[in-house]
Amino acid sequence: MKVISWNLLRLTGAAVEDVAALVDREKPDVMLMQEATRHIGDLPSLVGGHFHRLSWLGRIHGLAVWSPHRFGVPRALSLPASRLPGRLPRRRAQLVQIGDITLANVHLSHGQLLNRRQLGRIAAALRGKPSAIIGDYNIVGPVLLPGFADVGPREPTHYASNVVPFRLDRCLVHGLSCRTADALAFGPSDHRPIRLELALAEGWGLDGSGLRARPDMRPIRRDRLRRLYR
């Protein structure tokens, strides 16, 4: 699965035509977007495919996903918020199921304790599923999330005040392997798009629920249970 994630920078950054040009050039299986305004909803008219946008209350932008493949309506996951007066509207993650893989499209808060709490909430919602948390983390420094590996590109994806480099756009995976990860060239936005090639990790096989389970996670057979409790 080829995934591209891009923070579009609201109204002053990438327009829908810029996103369409990137899709035409890279041909991803999934395109995740942060700070997507309602104008990005015109993307299917330019490149076809399927689109869903999750708006944030009180904001002109939100999260969006596009794919040439049909997918179910994404789930909105509310994230922890600051209790300080004048706080920003509550942030949400967009959980998208594409085949056997769940993708969490995120734009986390700037607070370095708060955004790590938000990651914990997302990880709990994805527990036991082959999944990836992708997007604008707004995190500085390492991220330690049990059960997840940081496989995103290592180069800077944003320059604060066009000077200070930060690796804000990241990808953490569980039950997946990453074949390639890199940051693309800057476009009209102040963030570089990131490009990832993800696959199910070795050891995940189909079980009765349709998810891919590792051998050590398979249920114990009933005849073995009877022997255990004799």
Rank of each mutant, 00 (worst) to 15 (best):
S5G: 08
N7Y: 07
R10P: 09
L11S: 09
V16H: 08
A20S: 05
A21E: 09
A21G: 04
D24S: 12
E26G: 03
P28C: 02
D29N: 08
D29I: 02
A36Q: 05
A36W: 11
R38F: 13
I40L: 13
G41M: 06
P44N: 00
S45F: 11
L46Q: 05
L46T: 03
V47I: 07
G48H: 04
G48R: 01
H50D: 03
F51S: 00
F51G: 01
L54N: 01
L54S: 04
W56V: 04
W56P: 01
L57H: 09
I60V: 04
G62C: 08
L63H: 05
W66A: 00
R70K: 10
G72T: 07
V73R: 11
V73K: 12
P74W: 05
A76Q: 03
L77K: 00
S78L: 10
L79G: 05
L79K: 03
L79W: 15
P80M: 01
P80Q: 02
A81S: 14
S82T: 10
S82Y: 15
L84V: 11
G86E: 07
P89R: 00
R90S: 05
R92S: 11
A93T: 04
L95C: 02
L95W: 12
I98S: 04
G99T: 02
A104N: 05
N105D: 13
N105Y: 11
V106L: 08
V106Y: 14
S109F: 12
L114Q: 08
L119C: 11
R121L: 10
I122V: 15
A123Y: 14
G128R: 00
S131T: 03
G135T: 02
Y137I: 01
N138V: 09
V140W: 15
G141M: 09
G141S: 09
F148V: 01
A149F: 14
V151D: 06
R154W: 13
Y159D: 02
Y159G: 01
Y159A: 02
A160S: 10
A160E: 09
N162D: 15
N162P: 11
V163Y: 15
L168C: 06
L168W: 15
D169L: 09
C171Q: 03
L172A: 02
L172E: 03
V173K: 03
H174F: 10
G175H: 07
L176R: 02
S177H: 09
R179L: 12
A181T: 08
L184T: 06
L184F: 13
A185Q: 09
D190S: 04
D190Q: 01
R192V: 11
P193K: 00
L196P: 15
A201Y: 13
A201D: 11
G205S: 13
G205Q: 08
G208Q: 07
S209C: 07
S209Y: 12
G210V: 08
L211C: 06
L211F: 15
L211W: 15
A213F: 15
D216A: 07
D216W: 14
M217Q: 14
R218N: 07
P219M: 00
R221W: 14
D223T: 06
R226Q: 13
L228Y: 08
